[in-house]
Structure formats: structure tokens, C-alpha cells
């Protein structure tokens, strides 16, 4: 086991500063400086997302990861860092830190794709992915359906949201019905007492016409507008808004479309494994419906624990480990961040 190289992974694509250490598919450390508690105070406002916050968190998070793994910087064999997609200024901090470290310890540096990192994270949970998978990535910033034949080198985008990300829809609907930030957990909690069939909200991009053009794409903008209109109508009529029912019906619409299209992709592409990742994968309804539908369709569902679902450094180290294992060329020393890096580009 110890013969496998030690990979340091750095993630700063959004508001989590993550540093992880991985050997092969074994996680040794996963330190994350999160600011979600801070966000809650501001009701979803994010002053901490500034590059400055990453800058302040970087060194302490790196030390925490090294301590957790019981290794020194000199033990690291290679460094992987998120090159994109993400917020440009935030990515810059991680990439600059990684470049400086790589020069300091004279080790190769790999700029990797954040989205594929989410899929690689599953390797830390249940071992190497040896067969092609369909990955459903759902978070505040992402809603994508990927086909990954090889995490290190072959990923393609089957579809994605054409407007809002699923997690973003949760946050916006939560604000609309007076629930706090972050929207996901609060909507799930409220929905537990609601009837998902009490209101039929639209299922984005599932009509026959949309299934031709946007077979594996998602849309949550129309759902968001439908919920807004429904709530506005109740308010106009002086009817109290049934928050639990609205939350349950909204959550059902999101979970239904996500899992339906992901299962369809597995079936149509003859793929037997689905990986569910990203922060929204923590939603119980999404998880339950995915489990139920995968079981019915005979698809194996793989899902990492929550701390590996949300943004973290270990997932980037896991992807780095896969890239190193295939002896791929390190990134050029002057590689740049790419805030809209396409998923097909696993390594920059």
C-alpha cells in the first residue's frame, strides 16, 4: 500500500478551502475550512467567498491535513489542484498555492477538473471504479450527468442544467417560502410533514419535445417560477402558504427528474453503475428515490459519504492519484485556471 505515491489535493473552486492526502484509493486526510455557518448568519450571503478567505484558510488547512495524515510536506510525491470549473478568483488562490508548493518541494503538479474530482471521490469510499459509470452531480453550483469510462482520462458530459443548478433552486425556494439558508436541509425538514402529491409542480425538460433536444439536460428555472407563482397566488388570495406541502411537492419534482434522467442514461447507454455525488446527494428524498429506481432497474448505486460529496481536497487528491497511476504528463508550470473548464478536460 505504502508503495503507492502520496498525493496532496487542493480544492478552492467555490467557498470551501479543502486540502486532502490520498494514496491510491485510500484517504489519509481530508481537511476542509467551511464557511457554511458563517453564511447562515447572513441568510445566504457570501462575503467569505472572496479569494482573501481562501488565502487566509490555505496554510492552516494544509497543516491540518498534514497533521491528520501524520506526514510532512517532503513526503508528498505529487500535487493535484482544481484548475476549474469554479470562481476565477477562488481558483487562483488554490492554483497559486499548489504551484508554490510544487516548486518548493520539487514535485510534479497536476491541474485537474473539479467535476471529475467529485466522481473520483467515490473511489475513496468503495474502491476503484473499474467499469464505466453514469455520474449524477448535484450541488449548489452544479447539476450534471456525466459518463465516465475512466476517471483519469475519459469523461464526457451527457447533459446538465440549462439554467439553475438544483441546489440553487433549493436555496431560492427556501427563501421564497421563508425558510433559512442553506435551503436543502431546511426544505427536507419542512417537507417531512408535507404531502408531495398535494401540488403538482412541473417536471423540467420531460415533455416529449424536450426529451428530443434535452434528453439528459435539466431545467429548474420553470419549476422555480411555478413555485413563485403558486405562492404569490396564495398570498394574493389571503390563504396561508402551506410551507410543508410546497416544500414536499417542490422536493419531489427535483428528486423525480434527477433520478429519472440518471436511470434513463444508465439504461440507454448500457451502464450498470450510477455514482451520486455533490451536496444535494445528501437530500434524503433524492437518495431514497435514486436507491429505489436503481434497484428496480438493476443498477448498482454508489455514493460516497457526505463529507466526500461536498467540495473537499481529498476528491482532488483521489483524481490526482488516478492521473499519476496512468503516468499522464504533469500540467505545464504556467497553466491557468479556467472558470468554465469543460468536463471532457480531466487534466489541463
Amino acid at each position: 500500500m505504502t508503495s503507492q505515491p502520496l498525493i496532496l489535493g487542493i480544492e478552492t473552486s467555490c467557498d470551501e478551502t479543502g486540502v486532502g492526502l490520498v494514496r491510491g484509493t485510500t484517504m489519509l486526510a481530508n481537511a476542509v475550512a467551511s464557511s457554511v455557518d458563517e453564511h447562515a448568519r447572513f441568510g445566504g450571503v457570501v462575503p467569505e467567498v472572496a479569494s482573501r478567505a481562501h488565502l487566509e484558510a490555505m496554510t492552516p488547512t494544509l497543516h491540518r491535513a498534514l497533521d491528520e495524515a501524520g506526514v510532512g510536506l517532503e513526503d508528498v510525491d505529487a500535487i493535484a489542484v482544481t484548475a476549474g470549473p469554479g470562481l476565477a478568483g477562488a481558483l487562483m488562490v488554490g492554483v497559486s498555492a499548489a504551484k508554490a508548493l510544487a516548486i518548493a518541494v520539487d514535485k510534479p503538479l497536476y491541474g485537474v477538473n473539479h467535476l471529475v474530482g467529485h466522481v473520483a471521490a467515490e473511489q475513496l469510499e468503495n474502491g476503484a471504479l473499474t467499469e464505466p459509470v453514469v455520474a449524477l452531480l448535484v450541488s449548489g453550483g452544479h447539476t450534471e450527468l456525466l459518463e465516465v469510462s475512466d476517471v483519469a482520462s475519459a469523461a464526457k458530459l451527457l447533459g446538465g442544467t440549462i439554467d439553475d443548478a438544483a441546489g440553487e433552486a433549493f436555496d431560492k425556494i427556501a427563501r421564497l417560502i421563508g425558510l433559512p439558508y442553506p435551503g436543502g436541509p431546511h426544505i427536507q425538514k419542512a417537507a417531512a410533514d408535507g404531502d408531495p402529491s398535494s401540488i403538482r409542480f412541473p417536471r423540467g425538460l420531460t415533455s416529449e419535445r424536450d426529451m428530443t433536444r434535452h434528453r439528459y439536460d435539466f431545467s429548474f428555472s420553470g419549476l422555480k417560477t411555478a413555485v413563485a407563482r403558486w405562492v404569490e397566488t396564495a398570498e394574493r388570495d389571503g390563504v396561508p402558504v402551506p410551507v410543508a406541502d410546497v416544500a414536499a411537492a417542490f422536493q419531489e419534482s427535483v428528486a423525480d427528474v434527477l433520478t429519472r434522467k440518471a436511470v434513463l442514461a444508465c439504461q440507454e447507454r448500457d451502464i450498470g453503475t450510477m455514482v451520486l455525488a455533490g451536496g444535494v446527494a445528501a437530500n434524503a428524498r433524492v437518495r431514497d428515490l435514486a436507491r429505489e429506481r436503481c434497484a428496480e432497474a438493476g443498477i448498482e448505486l454508489r455514493q460516497p459519504r457526505l463529507s466526500l460529496c461536498t467540495d473537499n481536497g481529498a476528491m482532488i487528491a483521489a483524481l490526482g492519484a488516478a492521473v499519476v497511476e496512468q503516468n499522464l504528463e504533469p500540467s505545464a508550470p504556467d497553466f491557468a485556471t479556467d472558470s468554465s473548464l469543460p468536463v471532457t478536460q480531466v487534466l489541463v
Binding site: 467555490c14 457570501v46 470549473p85 442544467t161 443548478a165 440553487e168 431560492k172
Partner: peptide
């Protein structure tokens, strides 16, 4: 280069 989608979460996209 697309896709152009809502940047609410990432705040800005180039």
C-alpha cells in the same frame, strides 16, 4: 463557450 447557466452559486463565470 457555453453553457451559460445561472452563476448564483459560483457568483461569476468567464
Amino acid at each position: 463557450r457555453g453553457p451559460v447557466t445561472s452563476p448564483t452559486f459560483v457568483l461569476a463565470r468567464t
